[in-house]
Amino acid sequence: KVMEIKLIKGPKGLGFSIAGGVGNQHIPGDNSIYVTKIIEGGAAHKDGRLQIGDKILAVNSVGLEDVMHEDAVAALKNTYDVVYLKVAKP
């Protein structure tokens, strides 16, 4: 199931950690970017929809399929206060 989640960045950013990407696979044979941690009190935690194990398909208009881990981190960092995440639920 794919959904779009709109998050408003807090003082600590979006409030979640990711793993995965080309050269840094979270699941062997899979280059996808996965949510590995939700920080308590952060934007994602308060919103409640993003969960550990969700796959991040895109940030705003930037696709995160088959990208390097660093590029995924940069895509999440290089955002304004309002961030749209395209997410696939497991």
Rank of each mutant, 00 (worst) to 15 (best):
G20D: 02
K89E: 06
V73Y: 08
K89L: 05
L76V: 11
N31D: 15
L7P: 01
G53K: 05
N31W: 05
G29Y: 07
D54I: 00
K12T: 06
D30V: 04
P11M: 07
I39S: 13
S61G: 12
N24R: 14
H45D: 14
V82M: 15
G63E: 15
P28Q: 13
I18T: 07
G20E: 02
V59C: 14
N24C: 13
K1E: 04
A88Q: 07
P90E: 11
G10C: 12
L7F: 12
T36I: 13
L76S: 02
A44F: 00
G21Q: 02
Q51K: 15
I33D: 00
I18W: 10
V2I: 15
G48L: 03
L76E: 01
Y34F: 09
I39N: 14
V35W: 00
E70H: 15
E4F: 14
I8P: 07
K1G: 05
I18Y: 11
K37H: 12
D54R: 00
V67P: 07
I18N: 01
G15E: 03
N24Y: 08
I52G: 06
D66C: 13
V87Q: 00
G13L: 03
K86Q: 11
E70L: 11
I5D: 00
K46P: 02
H69Q: 11
K12E: 09
D47H: 04
K77F: 06
I38W: 01
T79M: 07
V2E: 09
D30H: 05
E65I: 08
I5E: 00
S61Y: 13
N31G: 03
L50K: 00
P11W: 06
L14I: 06
V82F: 12
G13M: 04
G15W: 00
P28H: 15
G63F: 11
A72M: 03
V87N: 01
Y34H: 04
D71Q: 11
D30C: 09
K12G: 08
A88Y: 15
V62W: 09
A74Q: 07
G20N: 02
N31T: 10
G20A: 02
A19L: 05
G42H: 07
V73C: 10
V73H: 11
A72V: 08
G41C: 06
A88S: 11
D47Y: 02
I52E: 13
I33G: 01
G42P: 01
S61M: 10
L64W: 07
L57C: 14
K37F: 07
Y80W: 09
G20Y: 02
S32N: 15
M68N: 13
M3G: 05
A88P: 04
F16R: 01
G15Y: 00
I39W: 08
L14A: 04
G29S: 08
